[in-house]
């Protein structure tokens, strides 16, 4: 399997999937009208990766905005990570949010309560 790198656009985030290092990074805005199209390859990649994951998979999610259409796809990504974690491989999700963005913190906490993977809420102070 190959790493993924997708540049960010006004409506889609920068994505970096690195199977060699076991790191995943999603950063920017995720507000496409049709998010399934964007996220499907990312979810499929995790299916492959789950076959031989690293000891630790570290996931950084740093979103400025995301729409409700993306929120379901992000949950799909997290569910794949949950499956890896369930198979006794370490997974850590770092959820970044700007210091005054309570809505983004709350969004992270919503996921944390649904997905059985350790989350770390990281506040970014300007």
């Amino acid at each position: 399997m190959k790493p993924i790198y997708i540049e960010g656009t006004a409506k889609t985030p920068m994505v970096k999937y690195d199977n060699e290092n076991g790191t995943i990074e999603i950063k920017g805005r995720s507000i496409p009208e049709n998010s399934i199209e964007f996220y499907k390859p990312l979810v499929d990649w995790l299916d492959d990766y789950a076959g031989s994951p690293k000891e630790l998979t570290k996931v950084d999610v740093h979103l400025e905005y995301f729409n409700t259409s993306s929120s379901k796809c992000i949950l799909d990504v997290f569910k794949k990570l949950e499956a890896i974690h369930k198979n006794k491989h370490e997974v850590l999700i770092n959820w970044f949010y700007e210091e005054d963005d309570e809505d983004m913190l709350e969004a992270g906490e919503d996921y944390e309560s649904i997905i059985r993977v350790p989350f770390r809420m990281i506040e970014i102070v300007d």
Binding site: T68, S69, E106, I114
Partner: peptide, 29 residues
Amino acid sequence: KDMYKFILNHQKLSAKGGGGLGLVDIARK
């Protein structure tokens, strides 16, 4: 919040792309 999480976790995205979450999300904010 509970309603949002329930829909998020239980409802599939429609072919149109919407998932019935938009108004709930707006109301939360």
